[in-house]
Design a protein around this nucleic acid. Sequence first.
DNA 1: GACCAGGCACATC
DNA 2: GATGTGCATGGT
Length: 233
Amino acid sequence: MGKGNHLVEIYNSLFKHFGPQHWWPGETPFEVIIGAILTQNTSWDNVEKAIASLKESGRFTPHGLYNTQADILARLIKSSGYFNIKAKRLRNFLSFLFNEYGGDLGRMLKEDGLVLRHRLLDVNGIGPETADSILLYAAEYPIFVVDAYTKRIFSRHGYIPADATYHQIQELFMKSLSGDTYLYNEYHALIVRVGKELCKKNPFCSDCPIEYDLYKPRKNVTVNVKCQSSKFK
DNA sequence: GACCAGGCACATC
DNA sequence: GATGTGCATGGT
């Protein structure tokens, strides 16, 4: 990027269109982390139901969930889908939290950001997006979260190649933007918003806030870019 | 009934 | 290293 900096311009357009998103949609760092694991390839609506069910069970604390058997946990999070594997993933995270930080979330979140990232990636069931969501939205460490919407929307608009890796996309955004927690927070939230809401209502984005590029700027070119269907990667 | 949703690990070539 | 597949619910 560099000249003109399209990623900044797009952020400004999205922010102007949608306003601040006040993310993550969770009340505490603990809720952010649980939600980040449960929302893997799953709609947030289904995750909310699972979190409500965990809260109702009276076990929605690090200790509470740590002491809950996998099969019980699976039943509680049923609505979030993949419940057996996600129950294990939650338990893997909780074991990590108790083994490495004595179950103290505050201690874990004070860990150096990049050190914590590496350690989270060693937990089976936590990949780059989940780790980065935890860092950005629970630890407030300035790192850009890349998700399916980011890749789909920005590749279809021509800003990144279709086969770009997580790391390549993250690097592009972080090189183009100042390393600011608030900016990374809002940007990711706005991408989810435009992907979920606007592209769904109007898949061919003639009025999309994101300008079409295809690696070099083309002004006054009308292009229809279908953003929603995942059939077109 | 098909398609989709804020991934990830693992098998196989 | 690239590609394919299982995991599963609930909404449209």
